[in-house]
């Protein structure tokens, strides 16, 4: 069957199935199981009202449970077992973690990930804040914002191609077609550099791609926060003789600190999951490995589910503080 046709049928079955499920299950509840008539009408209505929320929730809960909650538990189990040849598995305790800890590539990935965690959220938030503050003050600010925001729509893979062209290297006797090398030579560099193969620094060239993408996100959120600041506070500061920098750092920054934390943590999570950029640009060569790509490597190249799952659990462990913090805040807000 042609995939497009299959897609169309899936849409019809999916959407029709959903609507049908919700409609008929509600009908069943109201008309057959607990009809709102007869001598038990009152009790029946109450019972139906107790069950109905779960009818509405059931498909979503099923999907969430199967596709997100169950994998967390199953990955934990897999990380503690070893696949035996010919099917089946054996409990091996922490062996997978021990094996992983003995691999230099894992420590390289962890170290690089920490570097990413420091640099990308910090730079994205800083550029985003700068862009938000500056564009809020000028008439063509909205156009500027939309252009800085644009990389958000570009895939990591597309961004990888875009930046590979920036980092391109040609032999010294030819004209450089990568901007970075052209600038480097123009400013007196001796010979063109292959930027992505210089250990340690190449990490930063990869990070630039993510900063470029995430700055727009930070800008949009922070710009809304800046606009939410009550004008009286700024007016009062200006009347008291504060200069623009003082207004920004002493008056505005403290009032949007909550939003800055939100932006920072959101980008942190993106960084922890970053895979496509490294996969497409260096594939972890030249000491640029990161955890998500290390994991993919273990799973699908080395076919080692144990160590792969163990490294996935490391990512989960790094995400957990943010998860707890978000849940804590969400509950506080609801009260």
């Amino acid at each position: 069957m042609h995939p497009a046709l299959q897609g169309l049928i899936t849409i019809i079955i999916g959407v029709g199935g959903c609507v049908g499920y919700f409609y008929f299950s509600n009908q069943l509840l109201d008309k057959v199981l607990f009809p709102a008539r007869g001598k038990n009408a009152g009790r029946n209505i109450n019972r139906a009202e107790m069950i109905r929320p779960w009818l509405f929730l059931a498909p979503a809960l099923l999907a969430l449970g199967l596709y997100l909650a169950y994998p967390v538990v199953e990955t934990l189990r897999l990380s503690l077992t070893e696949r035996l040849p010919g099917g089946g598995s054996r409990f091996v305790g922490l062996d997978n973690y021990r094996q992983m800890a003995n691999e230099p590539k894992f420590w390289e990935a962890l170290k690089n990930n920490m570097l990413w965690l420091l640099v990308v959220p910090a730079l994205s938030t800083a550029f985003g804040l700068l862009a938000a503050q500056l564009t809020d003050r000028i008439r063509w600010g909205n156009i500027a914002k939309s252009l800085i925001f644009m990389p958000m729509a570009i895939s990591f893979v597309g961004a990888a191609v875009i930046w590979k062209l920036v980092y391109d290297t040609r032999p010294i006797d030819q004209e450089q077609i990568g901007v970075l090398n052209a600038l480097y030579l123009w400013f007196g560099g001796e010979s063109p550099q292959t930027w992505l193969t210089i250990p340690f620094w190449n990490n930063f060239f990869l990070m630039a791609v993510l900063v470029w993408i995430q700055t727009g996100f930070a800008m949009v959120i922070l710009s809304a926060a800046l606009r939410g600041i009550p004008e009286e506070t700024i007016e009062a500061a200006i009347l008291d003789g504060a200069n623009p920098f003082q207004v920004f750092f002493r008056i505005k920054m403290p009032q949007i600190s909550g939003t800055i934390v939100v932006v920072w943590t959101t980008i942190t999570i993106v960084v922890l999951k970053v895979f496509d950029i490294v996969f497409a640009m260096t594939n972890g060569q030249w000491e640029t490995q990161v955890l998500a790509n290390y994991m993919f490597d273990k799973l699908f190249r080395a076919n080692d589910w144990g160590v792969g799952s163990a490294s996935a659990m490391v990512i989960m462990l790094l995400v957990t503080p943010i998860l707890v913090w978000n849940v804590y805040n969400a509950r506080k807000e609801m009260r």
Binding site: K273, M295, W305, I315
Partner: peptide, 13 residues
């Protein structure tokens, strides 16, 4: 909570 669960965990299971 599930909003931030990395989808890497879901791959093998």
């Amino acid at each position: 909570g599930l909003l931030v669960v990395p989808l890497q965990l879901a791959l093998i299971p």
